[in-house]
Design a protein around this nucleic acid. Structure first.
Length: 443
DNA sequence: GTTGAGCGTT
């Protein structure tokens, strides 16, 4: 075993013809070796002329470092051997902690008090915004990894500061690499790089797929059985379709100042869910050359007839799902991959609001709706750059209102036209432009 | 319950 505070060493300038067993004798005189690994090229497997070495004790590492680093040149090399803490070790990152969920009133001294019993603190900084206000987090650097680890064990989650929303967070600070990634993400967010497809392809896609299948099956609406949010919504749409087609049954009706939800006029209702809906792309309108959504294809819940597709047969549910899953997916994916030759990078949704006139306030959402369902509901009208259902922090329950932001005002207007007053269950959606923060002009 | 809180990485 190795000590918990042993140091991983980077060994450089070693001849490429030496492998682990050749190197061991060289290093063993300073102590027992815990691990020695020659670095090899990931692809070719070629010896890279360096290695990682971990002794069982910190003391051995230090001895080896002092005795060898830059001290001798191995046969065949023109530079002296390097023996130094690996990058992962002594950049400070392994003994530097990120502390979150602090009270914003807590000062450096307060934090020191909290952390000093676990080791000697080399550095303690509260993170502050430009205005000097604490961001509620800090960095604490100990003189050793072990001390830092001890602080994590003792303090992480141990208490909740007054005014903080959850318990104290104590963890190792980001490494350089992690920080770079974080920066890039922030930048991407600021530049408004957001691709709704990312969500489609991400975890939500699979979820939506199931939802859509359930919707297509139209299980017992309003009969007491639980319907998942999207299923309820999609089923509602279908009932709506039935209504406007003069078929019995729907209590979903369009209203709202004479505007009608899109999809009206789709003449045929069959039981075949569209390939797109089955794969979680329901509501993703075909985009035309002008980049505007094809409103006619929207909100048919996959019952928009496919011209040139002769099969209007009614399949039993299971069959239709399998049928679509297997045969139709490539077609849907083909469309997508044309639009995005490179798979789009998954960039976390960071941009909250769109430009003026692009942000909608939506009220009377079904209780079950989350961000994902909200986005699904509005995707047909354009590029949704964010969707947010307001949630009560205490109960985690939706407050039944939320926000959707588009990248252009036209989409927002189209969404208002179509969705304001749209009835779901006993409620009608209220869809309007979000009040600007500097709310001088009321809408 | 009616207009984007918050978990924050120098």
């Amino acid at each position: 075993m190795k000590d918990h505070d042993a140091i991983k060493l980077f060994i450089g300038q070693i001849p490429r013809n030496l492998d682990e067993k050749d190197l061991r004798p060289l290093f063993e005189e300073f102590g027992k070796i815990y691990e020695l690994t020659v670095l090899k090229d990931r692809f070719t497997g070629m010896h890279k002329g360096c290695a990682f070495l971990t002794y069982c004790t910190r003391e051995s590492s230090l001895k080896a470092q002092n005795a060898l680093h830059e001290q001798k040149t191995l046969p065949g090399m023109n530079r002296p051997i390097q023996v130094k803490p690996a990058d992962s070790e002594s950049r400070g990152e392994d003994r530097k902690l990120f502390v979150g969920m602090l009270n914003k009133q807590q000062s450096e001294d307060d934090v020191r008090c909290l952390f000093e019993s676990f080791g000697s603190i080399e550095e303690c900084t509260i993170l502050r915004g430009p205005d000097g206000n604490s961001k509620g987090c800090a960095f604490v650097k100990y003189s050793s990894h072990a001390e830092a680890q001890a602080a994590i064990s003792a303090l992480h989650g141990s208490q909740t500061m007054p005014g903080a929303s959850s318990s104290l967070v104590v963890k190792f600070a980001d490494t350089d690499k992690e920080r770079t990634i974080r920066r890039m993400q922030q930048m991407a967010g600021q530049m408004g790089i957001f691709n709704p497809m990312a969500l489609q392809f991400g975890a939500y896609g699979a979820y939506a797929q199931v939802q859509q299948q359930q919707a297509a099956l139209m299980a017992s609406v309003g009969q007491g059985g639980y319907l998942s949010p999207m299923a309820a919504f999609a089923a509602a749409q279908m009932q709506h379709m039935a209504t406007i087609n003069g078929l019995p049954g729907g209590h979903m009706t369009p209203t709202s100042g004479g505007s009608t939800p899109p999809g009206i006029g789709a003449p045929t209702v069959t039981s075949i869910p569209s390939p797109i809906s089955v794969n979680g792309f329901a509501g993703m309108p075909p985009h035309q050359a002008n980049g505007q959504p094809n409103a006619e294809a929207v909100y048919t819940n996959g019952i928009h007839p496919y011209p040139g597709k002769p099969s209007q047969t009614t399949h039993p549910p299971t069959t239709s799902i399998q049928h679509n899953t297997h045969s139709a997916y490539p077609a849907a994916y083909g469309q997508i991959s044309q639009a995005f030759p490179q798979p789009p990078p998954i960039i976390p949704q960071q941009q909250r609001e769109g430009p003026e006139g692009c942000n909608l306030f939506i009220y009377h959402l079904p209780q079950e709706f989350g961000d994902g369902e909200l986005m699904q509901m509005f995707l047909p009208f354009g590029n949704v750059i964010s969707s947010k259902v307001f949630v009560d922090r205490a109960t985690n329950q939706s407050k039944c209102f939320g926000f959707v932001s588009f990248d252009n005002p036209g989409s927002a207007q189209a969404a208002i036209q179509s969705m304001n007053g749209f009835q779901i269950g006993m409620k009608r959606l209220k869809v309007q432009l979000k009040r600007p923060k500097d709310a001088n002009r009321p809408y």
